[in-house]
Design a binder for these strands. Structure first.
Lengths: 215, 215, 215, 215
DNA sequence: TATGAATGAGCTTTCATTCAT
DNA sequence: TATGAATGAAAGCTCATTCAT
């Protein structure tokens, strides 16, 4: 019996669950949530449909499980890449690098997270919005701490840093998307562009150098 | 036949098409592309399904038509809000303001464009990517002109400004989304945050003030 | 085009609904609720499944509609066969005859009502129990009126006549079932057996002739 | 291994079979034949599914085994409650009492027998009809003996007593059902109602007091 | 032009049943 | 003996799409 046997039998539950989730991420990332069929997932996973339902539940459940797993992996990658003892700018920089590296190494995961999850209402957005919030909060904390440390009033800082964090996260997502079509650019470079854009602009703002429309 | 009849007959094609597209945008924005049914579109439009197929083609065609129309409206709003004779920063500023105002005034359109269109593969991404490209190019042109004018080498500027433009557009989209949940913040303020973030950071970059990781 | 064309096209809704209900009664009576498949119903009806769902709703709804229709037909047959101006015994007699005649003429209806409906919990039992109640009440009213007229105390009569009515209805159902296997016996005769059994025994009871266990 | 282990291993076949049948009766009575799943039976029984198949065969077989067992219990209860040396009326009376007492003491059994078994075609009706026949024959024998003893011609008695026995059994079933919703009425009372209804009416019939429609 | 009537095709989900250990 | 792991097969339901009028 070859080691490569596509259809291995009687595996423990854990292993099968991983197989299924892997297949699901792949299929969802290729066709999108709605166009993906459970048949294809089962085929790719090398597992019959009833097993999927027995282990992971409905299609919705399966998709949610994918999102949860991938979102956790992504956040772990980012947080794991950051040294909390470093200054704020270095933390942001390392976070960005980790983010782009994760995307580069896990394109299907990213597609599921970015494209599919957002567009499906209710049940999933919760999972997704939760992760997005974590990311935004992470960045927001950095910005906020940095801003107040430079003398900006707390009250004034609160909302603007949150919105900027949202913009940064969104900008990162957008750049990651752009990068999918320009893979020849090293992720390091892409990260540095975003870093510069955000950190310098933010620094200026904190120091009172503000752009204002000429009236 | 009373003047009040909801279902008016024998209307010219243009009017019918508008009715249908309006209904489609509404329905797609509420339920998403896949969960939207042609039945509901026809019901909301007050037009029978065969008419929809006769005038706008398949569901895909209909969705594409929605995107095209809304994307054009959005781009027209942005371009129309910008005075090409103004300096680059003012153009960007007015563009941003117009963008956020459009979103505020056309939430369903925005939802269709931002959430639904992105997540559907192939057929639509073309329409959508086209519009996104127009937006990115618009911004890129501003940045590029400004960068080279300040002495940055063209070759070096090309990719970085494009990526930054992508980041700006993505950041704008993300902020627009954030704003949907914080409508009490005036769009003017949101626009100014993004403007500052981008323009100042970009200015520094152009002038050689660059953030670099401490090695 | 032959008049006998199995698949006639573009019929008005009413006609299709009747076709579908007819087919459903037949199929449900043959295979039972659960073993009946919507595919077979659609095949027998000469109508595609989507029409069934469009017109009659889910399988449950369809079954409920069958029961409702057949139950009404049965009750109408019984009530229609009874002359309210006749004395109680004649009313009961005519009701019994009509009942057995209906069963003889509509065996599938009866199977659906008697065998299938009872065994399916909740949703249907309501429809069914409603009809059964009507039947029991009908009989109960006859018995009760007759009993009190003969001097039995109201309070005492209430429960016993209701229970007896239940027994009569159940006995009727049971006899109808028995008759399905002995169709050579005229329904008239079967009806007379039940009539005698019930009416005579009831009459004795009313007159105080009571059987009691010898202690 | 603790004495308290729910799941005891290596039990003799008899015990396992009883466990399984008990569980099956419970589950079938709760959900009905079709809605009951083998999974639930195995869960309730505390026995894995393969064991069920090994011991009792398919779902149909299992159900048939339930019916057989419960039917036998019921018939044993009835027969065991009757003293064959008593006169016919007392035998009938004791039988009725035993019947209602069994129903009161074994509601799940009764539900399986009365509601579930009847509605499932072919395979089970045989088991069920067999028991029903035994009951009808039992009653029929009593009635027939009593009728011929009173001078009714055998030929004439044959069919009518059989049909009446069917009616009595059906009436009993129906009353048992009625009683499930009126448990405050003592079974003794219910039994006496049915006894009077049947015995008195039958007695009249035997003595030539016959109800006849006025022409 | 306009539509009620109609369907092919496909999807998710469930279950009785059986391997392999 | 006993079971966790696994599946073939089918059922209910929906939807985009098109006739026939």
């Amino acid at each position: 019996m070859s080691v490569e046997d596509r259809r291995v039998k009687r595996l423990p539950r854990e292993v099968r669950e991983k197989q299924i989730l892997d297949a699901a991420v792949q299929v969802f990332s290729e066709h999108g949530y709605h166009n993906a069929s459970m048949d294809e997932v089962s085929e790719v996973a090398g597992v019959s449909k009833p097993m999927i339902y027995a282990y992971l539940g409905s299609k919705e459940d399966l998709f949610a499980a994918c999102i949860r797993r991938e979102a956790n992996l992504l956040m772990e990658a980012i947080v794991g890449g950051v040294d909390q003892n470093q200054p704020a700018d270095m933390q942001l920089w390392m976070g960005l690098r980790s983010f782009f590296e994760f995307v580069a190494a896990n394109k299907p995961s990213w597609r599921v997270l970015h494209r599919q999850a957002i567009s499906q209402g209710g049940p999933f957005s919760e999972e997704l919005v939760a992760m997005r919030s974590r990311a935004i909060n992470l960045v927001d904390a950095l910005l906020f701490r940095s801003a107040t440390r430079h003398g900006v009033e707390e009250q004034h800082a609160t909302k603007s840093t949150e919105a900027m964090a949202a913009a940064l996260v969104g900008g990162g997502e957008s750049m990651a998307d752009w990068w999918l079509d320009h893979p020849e650019v090293p992720t390091r470079v892409v990260a540095s562009w975003l870093m510069n854009l955000v950190w310098m602009g933010f620094g200026d703002l904190v120091e009172g150098t503000v752009w204002q429309p000429t009236p």
